[in-house]
Design a protein around this nucleic acid. Structure first.
Lengths: 215, 215
DNA sequence: AAACTGCCAACTGTCGACAGTTGACACGTT
DNA sequence: AACGTGTCAACTGTCGACAGTTGGCAGTTT
């Protein structure tokens, strides 16, 4: 059936396009041809346009009048500016988490950290999936929906900039240490320390991304 | 001429609609009828839909599938959650401003504060315009475009919630004192203090909005 | 050969019309 | 009278077509 089965065509197009942009199927710098992609998705240009505008509002696409939508590509100064925003948001989230966390939040946080350690000791690289899970668990503990939403958007943009998923062992080890320390601070209800550790953690991640950009 | 003279029809519609939503021409809780508003603006539903989706991405409208777009109305818990986000962003901006401000930034900040004082002493209420100008000047000094952009969006949502523009003299006086103190901290390059003062300031503003909501 | 001019194809911006869904009202039932 | 059911108008979701703009290419000039 043509009618919205469970989600509007525009909504489905958003999901598909976002996936394709984030995974690099549509590479940075390239352009999104409306008629071509519309045919490809089996929908008309109307819903696709809405999807494109939506992704543009998430900064996953850049709109140029009369030229179309482009996938933005990384730039060192952009990375730094983006991480300023991310730091502001996640440090606040860390503080809130320290003062609002419940026992179930702590269980979840410990769980994610433990899985990361197990994974690492088994010789596996620290998957980005688990990093995301950790930050998500922290956001849940912060109980600030608006901050959580913004962090989600920023993280997406960070993913977009991750040209290559880095698996630098020393960096991963330090990240896991940061996570553990963060959990301790949250567990102790030490908001100031949680914020400080988060800031250091993100600063490390940012630096890592910058070096991987210069290669 | 029908062609985009200087901005697309959708872009113009965004500006007009945003104005109407923020000034209460379209009151909170009401619905935006696509055909009606389209005729009213002299455009077709296509560009208007794009405009509506755009404003929805700014959270100035709420989309309900198959029902349309609604102007969200205030809720005490929403206000608190929104101010958590605003606090996170503006405290970070205050810190950055303290470490990055130039002399011209300081001149501009003093200027705005002085105009507020003059205005106040002349018996005029503290206009929201000047409050915005102050926060804007601070953001300029912070030099973090992404944070500035997010603050702009959050401030818009705050305006949307301002059912009645409050002119409570004690509150206004306290706000101006906060601003002055903030400028001092920024001038001294004291990031920690700038952040603290900003937090206190926003907490005061938030409280003021909450009390004005319960009336 | 370099620069300028005029044309052209490709694409976006916009429109009007059709199809499907939603909420409400009227009617009938218990 | 309260409740459930069927119908309907209003509106959103979607589509295909037209109009206007953009960047590039060919041809010409200096």
């Amino acid at each position: 059936m043509t009618p919205p089965l469970h989600l509007s065509l525009a909504g489905q197009a958003v999901d598909v396009l976002r996936e394709q942009v984030l995974t690099g199927v549509i590479p940075p710098g390239s352009r999104v041809n409306e008629v071509e992609v519309a045919q490809q998705l089996g929908i008309s240009r109307g819903p696709l346009r809405e999807a494109i505008r939506h992704l543009a509002s998430e900064r996953l696409l850049t709109l140029v009048p009369h030229r179309g939508a482009f996938v933005p590509d990384a730039d060192a100064s952009d990375v730094r500016a983006l991480f300023e925003l991310r730091t502001a948001l996640e440090c606040a989230a860390a503080e809130l988490a320290a003062s609002r966390r419940t026992d179930v939040d702590l269980v979840r946080l410990h769980e994610v950290c433990a899985e990361s350690r197990r994974n690492y000791k088994a010789g596996q690289p620290f998957p980005y999936r688990l990093d995301l899970a950790f930050h998500q668990a922290l956001l849940d503990a912060a109980r600030s929906p608006h901050i959580a939403e913004q962090v989600r958007l920023v993280q997406q943009r960070v993913v977009l900039l991750r040209s290559a998923l880095e698996d630098d062992p020393p960096h991963q080890h330090a990240s896991m240490d940061d996570h553990d320390e963060l959990v301790k601070a949250v567990e102790d209800g030490d908001a100031a320390r949680a914020s400080t550790v988060m800031r250091r953690h993100l600063s490390r991640v940012c630096a890592q991304m910058l070096t991987s950009l210069n290669r």
